[in-house]
């Protein structure tokens, strides 16, 4: 992966052109080039990068002059907060609506939910974000337009979700980011519900006289959660990695903005470090999914005491 990233980024443009004043003298440009080690052949650069990476150093940003990893770590909490919030919104709204739609396939409410989920999937995020700003901030004046707001601390965690001001800043970008995921959770939950409700064990549970609440909570829910969790964990990765559009619209000081700037300025170390970070994140999430899987589904547990 690091090889792919490194090669690709070496093909596009020369960062020195972006960094140096176009009126500089040629020997000055050469000096900058050798300072960053860019005068050496690509494979030497790569080996140096690898040596650094193994000791946890992914290089310094060309622009900020600070370690790329530190910059990412600085911005990460904001993005993580946004993504977590969006995920919670997606589950809290998506799951019940999806189950309702699955249980009452022909009701009027279901049609509205499913219609809404089609809109949620098809309306572009940036347009919806702009609309939300216009309605809630400009016209109604309920919520602030942009930024992150005050940061509170609770149980040692720092987040803007713990102050009222922070929350008012958070709610709109998080909802904006969540809308697509809500629609997806609704569809997954509905499909799962329809499928599981037609299975024999649900019928058998009904034949034993179990009330509907119990049926949904203990027999339906665990069984539909397995596929939903798989998808959501991966989606959580994409939320963190690609929240760029929402962050740009709401001027959220997260990773997305950092990366967009880095790409525009050809700040190679940040782009490479960011992509490495995203890859690691996805690997971690996959591991977590597997662990959750084993916790939820006894059939997956290895070395089962049969």
């Amino acid at each position: 992966m690091s090889l792919v990233v490194f090669t690709m980024i070496n093909i596009v443009g020369d960062p020195v052109d972006m960094l140096v004043n176009p009126e500089s003298l040629p020997d000055e440009i050469e000096r900058v080039r050798s300072d960053f080690g860019l005068d050496q052949p690509a494979h030497i650069q790569y080996i140096k990068f690898l040596q650094g990476a193994l000791s946890g150093d992914l290089g310094n940003s060309f622009i900020f002059g600070r370690p790329a990893l530190a910059l990412i770590a600085e911005r990460f909490p904001a993005t993580l907060e946004l993504a977590t919030c969006a995920l919670i919104i997606a589950i809290v709204f998506g799951l019940p609506l999806g189950i309702y739609a699955g249980l009452n396939p022909k009701s009027f409410g279901t049609r509205i939910i499913m219609g809404g989920s089609v809109l949620g999937i098809s309306i572009p995020t940036f347009w919806l974000g702009l609309m939300m700003i216009i309605i809630f901030s400009v016209v109604l004046g309920w919520l602030p337009v942009s930024g992150r707001g005050d940061i509170g601390s609770f149980l040692g965690l720092e987040s803007s979700a713990f102050t009222l001001d922070g929350l008012s800043h958070l709610i709109m970008p998080a909802t904006n980011l969540a809308l697509f995921k809500i629609a997806m959770v609704i569809r997954l939950a509905r499909a799962g519900t329809v499928e599981v409700m037609s299975l024999d064990f649900i019928k058998f549970a009904r034949a034993r006289g179990l009330p509907p609440e119990r049926l949904v909570r203990f027999h339906l829910l665990p069984n539909i959660l397995i596929p939903i969790i798989t998808v959501l964990a991966i989606e959580f990765g994409t939320l963190i990695a690609f929240a760029t559009v929402t962050e740009t619209i709401f001027a959220w000081p997260g990773l997305g903005k950092l990366v967009i700037d880095a790409i525009v300025n050809l700040d190679r170390p940040i782009v490479v470090a960011y992509l490495m970070f995203v890859v690691t994140l996805f690997l971690l999430l996959n591991l977590i999914v597997d662990i959750i899987y084993a916790a939820l589904d006894p059939r997956v547990r290895l070395n089962g005491d049969q």
Binding site: F201, K203, A205, R208, G209, N223
Partner: peptide
């Protein structure tokens, strides 16, 4: 369940696997 119990065909599918 209380007055009338039922048994279904396929024991593989009539129990909640989780």
């Amino acid at each position: 369940g209380k007055k009338i119990g039922m048994i279904f065909q396929d024991p593989q599918t009539s129990l909640n696997p989780l």
